[in-house]
Design a protein around this nucleic acid. Sequence first.
DNA 1: CAGTTTCATCAAAGTGCCTTCTTGTCGCCC
DNA 2: GGGCGACAAGAAGGCACTTTGATGAAACTG
Lengths: 121, 121
Amino acid sequence: MKLGHRDIPSEACRTVGDVLGQIGNKWSILVMVLLSQRPWTFNALRREIDVITQKMLTSTLRGLERDGYVDRTVLPGSVVQVEYRLTELGHDVLTPMNALADFAVDRRDDVIAARAAYDAG
Amino acid sequence: MKLGHRDIPSEACRTVGDVLGQIGNKWSILVMVLLSQRPWTFNALRREIDVITQKMLTSTLRGLERDGYVDRTVLPGSVVQVEYRLTELGHDVLTPMNALADFAVDRRDDVIAARAAYDAG
DNA sequence: CAGTTTCATCAAAGTGCCTTCTTGTCGCCC
DNA sequence: GGGCGACAAGAAGGCACTTTGATGAAACTG
């Protein structure tokens, strides 16, 4: 989300926007969904999300870690491995996000139909 | 939300991202919250959201209208006036969005604390 | 005619996520 | 030494939202 420099005159809306600025990013939702299953190492995530670049995965994970949704642990071993897991905060935000996902899937056709109608008019 | 050109390998996540790409924009939530109260004319919205530019308000409303969250009606009168109201789809998406808002407000301090800790580490 | 109101739109610059390409560090192995 | 795996990060370009500044169209009024 691009913030610009005019403040939204509503504290609550600003706060929602702040949350969405992080978890609304392109790769964040998928990453969090995977992490909600179990802890994943960086490389496992990268292999699972085949098409994501290292760069974007690193960036996404770092953003989620910074806001407290994800914990990062360096695993002891001969080869450096890093494990990520959802925090309690991360689990908690998935409740409304799952509700939103339900909406998105249930009403996908409505949105598409609305677009077609708008673009035709 | 910036989509780039690599597809997210999850239909559901893509669909959520699609919804958020519209309602997650900077001004959309506030506009929808106001519209959930009652129908508003363009100018009323503009005056209420004091700091928003005509340009952004127009753009935001057009996007919401295109995706079917908002209906636009030209009012008969001597001076052109346009009225916007939430559709059923618009009302329905506010249910998960309000849940997200609750999360955002309830856990605001957690997010802020996490950032401070991350930035200090 | 000029001014006002309402709403839409154009041009250009600012901003930050996304992508591509590349490099770097660490530990281990041959 | 070179190569590998794992993970992080820099530079540069792409792209669309956001902002700034301005213009335009329609109807009405003095």
